[in-house]
Design a protein around this nucleic acid. Structure first.
Lengths: 183, 183
DNA sequence: CAGTGAAGCGGAGGAAGTCTCCGCTTGGAT
DNA sequence: ATCCAAGCGGAGACTTCCTCCGCTTCACTG
């Protein structure tokens, strides 16, 4: 790739990050182009679809996921506290951008979504936590990772759309934790 | 209201119902107007916003809710079976139209949403079921109706966006039921 | 350094959707 | 039959998406 093209690409990602943060993932792409100082044609060559741009932005988050898992697993207390801490991290990661939770979770089951690899990272992280719980013998039988991811994605989507505070989200996560753990 | 205006209004609701069913709640409003044989101005006078039209359509569903509660509560088996049957009814009601689940549930906490009265009906229905469970002594302490509504709304939203079959939704409802009931 | 070809750029503009404004039509009261 | 307010329709302004293509710039080569 030519040096100027590389510069533009990076600048677009940077600006898109800011615009999406301000106005949600549905913000006009022409504005991203405008604020990056390039023509719309340039944006669409680098990122043929809106999702391609989403994907590029989320790529940076992905690297942080394992750190969030570790942070949650280091929580004081028993398995329940660790699990809830992880659930909160999970929802927090999904609600970084307005509209992200629904899009990421929707691509969970969809083979050909460009977001697939991203959400797979979240799913893998969740699976590692569930596996840990299973090893400790506190997980109910028959709890499926994909189902838990979707439940958490649903909670994140509700939190996103209703602008819920963490203290409003917590009781929902409590219900899921109760549903997932032995008593 | 003049008789011709009344006719147009009813026709618009009828056509909008069909269009939204075919193409989702985001279908172009001008197409609704076109298929109803009126100008866009007429549509926008009767329904100033897209939501106003959604509201008018959903008004007809509302009348059926209590029948769905009764149907679920008549399910063979114990409390758990009844509760799960109701959860399935709830999700089914919310996913009648593509995009409806997220919109309805988002308006749960929002005082001034035009969909408010509609979703309140769902919330009331859910509360009546939870109260029944509490009376039977099978409900966990501290389970809040709003949280359960949001969880179910989240599941419905995921089901809607990922086009899940009932058999894919069921395990998520199982988790919620486990989280809501004593064991 | 000049020349060259391909890679890349920008923005005009078409398509689709939203929503308003205003001149014309029509229902229904008198 | 007359009247006028309620109601209608559609032209068109505005926004956003996305493409196409003529022009510019990079980077390589002799």
């Amino acid at each position: 790739m030519r040096a100027d093209a590389q510069r533009n690409r990076e600048r677009l990602i940077e600006v898109a990050h800011a615009v999406f943060k301000e106005r949600g993932l549905d913000a006009p792409l022409d504005e991203v182009a405008r604020r990056a100082g390039v023509g719309p044609g340039t944006l669409y060559r680098h990122f043929p679809t809106r999702e391609a741009l989403h994907e590029a932005i989320m790529a940076t988050w992905i690297e942080e996921v394992s750190a969030h898992v570790e942070k949650a697993m280091a929580t004081e207390g028993g398995c329940r506290e660790k699990l809830l801490a992880w659930f909160e991290e999970y929802v927090g990661l999904l609600t970084r951008h307005q509209g992200a939770a629904a899009k990421i979770t929707a691509s969970l089951g969809c083979e050909d979504s460009p977001l697939r690899t991203k959400c797979q990272t979240y799913a893998d992280a969740n699976e590692s936590v569930l596996t840990e719980m299973a090893d400790q013998g506190v997980l109910r039988e028959g709890v499926d990772n994909l189902d838990v991811c979707r439940l958490l994605g649903g909670v994140a989507t509700m939190a996103d759309q209703s602008s819920l505070e963490p203290r409003d989200v917590r009781p929902m996560l409590d219900v899921i934790a109760n549903g997932v753990l032995k008593n």
